[in-house]
Design a protein around this nucleic acid. Structure first.
Lengths: 228, 228
DNA sequence: CGTGTATTCAATAAAACTATTGAATAGTTG
DNA sequence: CAACTATTCAATAGTTTTATTGAATACACG
């Protein structure tokens, strides 16, 4: 094998990864799987794809070694294999946020326009936690909270928040987080809290970004085999 | 705009980046541009593509905001805009090296089989530099060396190495580096040096990996407008 | 052991991507 | 300003990707 063939083969192998990442639905699936493991049907539900189409996208990701799969009961559970897959996705996401003006515009336009939603970085977030006087609010679905969450956070899924506002202390600043920077639950939660007279702000990124830098994670063990 | 449209649009924008990365030639171009700026013709030469085809690939990268371009004389010079583009490429590259067995196999099979080429990480490399007694050898083309190199390294492009072996001290350990982990110049240089009785080893990664983590970089200012 | 169910497969048509070819363009240089 | 030249554009044919549909499969569970 000569040098040119070698290079071509190496880049061709690497492009299998980028080809697998080159579809918007598959990116969304990866961001979803960063929260934990999901069955095909659940992924289809979350991404508004047909089950057959979801399955095909998952095959593409599996062939590129970007997801692992195990059977649990009747369900195939897909998950991200390493932190490295999330790290690659994160670096692409950050590149997009920094570089593509359209993304910034989309996010800003879509965020609750009435309330200026403020956000903090993970570093600033940690400083505020250390200083006390903050309540950490996880607004993701309960199963995702159970699969892993920031220690001492309170789980109130967004669709229950309106009814459970009293559980939150009014004196503290409330910092809400969800799946990632494009997850709008946190924005909506902050808007709702501000309207109800709370002091609230969102974490810019999401739970996986917290976990990937090695910060502590709390897991609730629940046997949810076959359901999640 | 509802939540679903928002998500679709965000992931669709992000997939413009991954689509632009989803071609082996474009990955090779990015790795090349990490060394400095190049004209279209030079990129075509390095990648063994036709000029027209190279230009089209560059348009794709430009539309995805992954490269910047300026005219210098008759030549269009392409370059990577930020460290972020290289960082994203690096994380994909590392994901591939870790995850795709075929890549590891390709690299191992292609490396000079007669001599076991050993490599050091950047951290270990720095420790050895600090301890003295090492000679740092840059085997890339001279223009790339001039565009940026590791301080105190000696530039001997690989194709001149055989004739210039005497310039290297035999007492020191020689650590060779080139463009990146898939650049075989460093391997060949190490093999040549070992055969000539030197103690030699390669840096696992390349110059851009050194630069991207903020380590010092030396630049030789040379007016090579129109030539590089 | 057969039934039920989640998932995958296969076929297909539409859309997107790719390399090639040759012409067009834009900007420099004399 | 005219000639030159590096680059880009346009057209095209071949290939790959994608979503849809409906059937097949594989496995668990009664």
């Amino acid at each position: 094998m000569n040098k040119k063939d070698f290079k071509n083969k190496v880049y061709s192998e690497l492009s299998k990864i980028t080809k697998a990442l080159s579809n918007p639905h598959r990116l969304e699936i990866i961001e979803l799987l960063a929260q934990g493991d999901y069955s095909v049907e659940q992924i289809a539900l979350q991404t508004s794809l047909s089950v057959a189409n979801t399955s095909q996208h998952l095959q593409v990701l599996k062939n590129a070694q970007l997801v692992d799969v195990t059977r649990i009961g009747n369900f195939m559970h897909y998950r991200l294999p390493h932190t490295n897959v999330f790290k690659a996705w994160k670096s692409i996401r950050e590149l997009g946020i920094e570089r593509i003006a359209a993304i910034d515009k989309l996010v800003n336009d879509f965020r609750q326009p009435k309330y200026k939603i403020e956000s903090v970085s993970i570093d600033e977030f940690r400083r505020r936690i250390a200083s006390g006087r903050v309540t950490i609010l996880d607004v993701r679905p309960e199963t995702e909270f159970n699969a892993g969450h920031i220690p001492n956070s309170i789980s109130i899924p967004f669709d229950q928040l309106q009814d459970r506002l009293r559980e939150l202390p009014k004196r503290n600043e409330i910092i809400a987080y969800c799946r990632g920077p494009f997850c709008v639950f946190a924005d909506e939660a902050v808007a709702m809290l501000i309207q109800a007279g709370y002091k609230a702000i969102r974490l810019q990124e999401g739970f996986p970004d917290w976990a990937v830098v090695g910060l502590p994670v709390k897991v609730n063990h629940k046997n949810n085999y076959g359901r999640n």
